[in-house]
């Protein structure tokens, strides 16, 4: 899987919009730095679904203490956390 920053953002945004749609919400205007829980587009269960999708899509198992607002609170935060974790993993195996 190619870890392109822009492609990751597009994919996360699409997933947020899809999950919001299921709740009857239109999240198409969500900004990359918007705090996802604060937007009201997703409830707790939908955010949990977003996290599970994120783990499975990017093969990134998370510890419970990593699931916080600082690491995963926005599209940008999720993107940067993913890139950082993958870079660290690559460095360890190099």
């Amino acid at each position: 899987m190619t870890l392109d920053r822009d492609a990751i953002k597009v994919a996360i945004r699409a997933q947020v919009i899809k999950l919001a749609n299921a709740l009857g919400m239109d999240a198409s205007e969500i900004g990359d730095d918007d705090i996802i829980p604060a937007t009201g587009f997703l409830d707790s269960t939908a955010i949990l679904e977003l996290v599970v999708w994120y783990e499975q899509t990017y093969e990134l198992p998370l510890r419970q203490d990593e699931i916080n607002i600082d690491n995963l609170g926005s599209i940008n935060a999720m993107t940067e956390f993913l890139l950082a974790r993958k870079a660290a993993a690559t460095a360890r195996t190099a």
Partner: peptide, 10 residues
């Protein structure tokens, strides 16, 4: 206080 991503209400 705990920087939680999801509401801990439930």
């Amino acid at each position: 206080a705990n920087r939680l991503l999801m509401s801990p209400l439930m």
